[in-house]
Design a protein around this nucleic acid. Structure first.
Length: 286
DNA sequence: CGCCAGGCTAGCG
DNA sequence: CGCTAGCATGGC
C-alpha cells in the first residue's frame, strides 16, 4: 500500500468532489451530497483510494498508482493556466472567487457512464443514492484501512442484472438505459478508443449508447475522457446562458453549446462547471 | 394536488 | 431534419 502526502496548490478537494460533477466518490462516513466527514474514497482499476486534504497537503492511501489518483482529481494541469485561457468575463470571475480550487475530475468511464444514465429528470443527491444502491447490490464489498467500501460493478457484473431487477432498485425508466447500454458495451463498443477521436466524433460515438443524448454525452466526455472543450447544457447551465449570455443562446442544444465553446475556448468545460456550481449554489443570479 | 429534477427516445409532420 | 409526448420516482 502506498501512503503519501502530496503538496497541492490551487486545489480544493471538497469543492471538487461535492460540486455535482461526480457520483463515483463517497465519504467514508456520511453522504457525499449531505453531511459527513471530509475523508473520501473511490476505486481505480478495482484498487481502493482514500484521500483527505489539510491545507496544501493532500493525504492519499491507496493500492493504486499515486499519479493515477492525482490525474483523477484533475491535478495534472495548472488551474491558473486554464483560467488564463479564458476571456475576461465578469460572471466567471464571480464564480472563480467563490469556488477557486474546484477541478474537473477524471472518473473511470463505466461508473461515470452509469451515473449519468441515471441523471435525467433527477436531483443530484438522488442520483448518488441510486448509484450507491447499484454498487451495494452488484459490486464487491472491500475493506481497506478499516473502512468498508463498495466497489462499483464492472460492465460484465452489471450486465447480469435484468431490467426488472434494476427497476426494483427504484431507478425508474432509467433501468432500460442501463440494461441496453451494458449489452452494447459488451458487444460493440470500445471506450478506450474515445480519447483518440475528435470531440465531434467522440460525441457521436457516445450517442450509440442507449440513454446517452447530447447532454449526457458531454458530461461523460468531460468528466471521464478529458474533453475539456465539452460544455454540457443542463437546466442550470441553460438558465445561466439565457440570463447572462443571451446573444449566445440558440434554440437548440448543439448550437448553444457550440457558441459557449467558441466563447470560452478549449477549456470551456471548466468554465461551465464553475458557472453551473455557482448557479446551483445561488452565488450568481439566474 | 401539481410541479420539477444535471434529458432521453420514439414517432410524428 | 425539428418538434414534442411520455416516461418513473420522490420531495416540496
Amino acid at each position: 500500500m502506498e501512503k503519501e502526502v502530496v503538496n497541492v496548490q490551487n486545489f480544493d478537494l471538497k469543492e471538487t468532489l461535492t460540486c455535482g460533477q461526480t457520483f463515483t466518490w463517497s465519504r467514508t462516513q456520511g453522504e457525499l451530497y449531505g453531511n459527513g466527514e471530509d475523508v473520501f474514497y473511490n476505486f481505480y482499476n478495482r484498487k481502493p483510494v482514500i484521500t483527505w486534504q489539510k491545507d496544501n497537503q493532500l493525504h492519499i492511501k491507496t493500492k493504486a498508482d499515486i499519479e493515477e489518483v492525482k490525474k483523477a482529481l484533475g491535478l495534472q494541469h495548472s488551474l491558473e493556466n486554464i483560467f488564463d485561457s479564458f476571456p475576461e468575463d465578469p460572471l466567471l470571475e464571480k464564480a472563480r472567487e467563490k469556488l477557486w480550487g474546484l477541478r474537473i475530475v477524471q472518473d473511470e468511464f463505466f461508473p461515470c457512464l452509469i451515473s449519468y444514465l441515471l441523471s435525467p429528470q433527477m436531483r443530484i443527491p438522488r442520483i448518488k443514492e441510486m448509484y450507491n444502491r447499484i454498487a451495494e447490490e452488484y459490486g464487491e464489498e472491500i475493506e481497506f484501512e478499516d473502512v468498508k467500501m463498495h466497489r462499483f460493478p464492472t460492465p460484465e457484473e452489471l450486465a447480469k442484472a435484468s431490467e426488472e431487477e434494476l427497476r426494483d432498485l427504484g431507478v425508474g425508466y432509467r433501468a432500460e438505459y442501463i440494461d441496453k447500454t451494458t449489452d452494447i458495451l459488451l458487444q460493440d463498443f470500445e471506450p478506450d478508443t474515445l480519447r483518440q477521436m475528435s470531440y465531434g466524433k467522440a460525441r457521436k460515438e457516445m450517442k450509440k449508447l442507449y440513454g446517452v443524448g447530447n447532454k449526457v454525452a458531454d458530461c461523460i466526455l468531460l468528466f471521464s475522457q478529458g474533453f475539456y472543450q465539452a460544455y454540457p447544457l443542463d437546466t442550470w447551465a441553460k438558465k445561466a446562458v439565457k440570463k447572462h449570455y443571451p446573444e449566445l443562446h440558440a434554440d437548440n442544444y448543439t448550437q448553444t453549446s457550440e457558441n459557449m465553446r467558441k466563447y470560452f475556448g478549449e477549456n470551456s468545460g471548466y468554465a461551465q462547471e464553475y458557472i453551473f456550481h455557482a448557479a446551483r449554489k445561488g452565488l450568481i443570479e439566474l
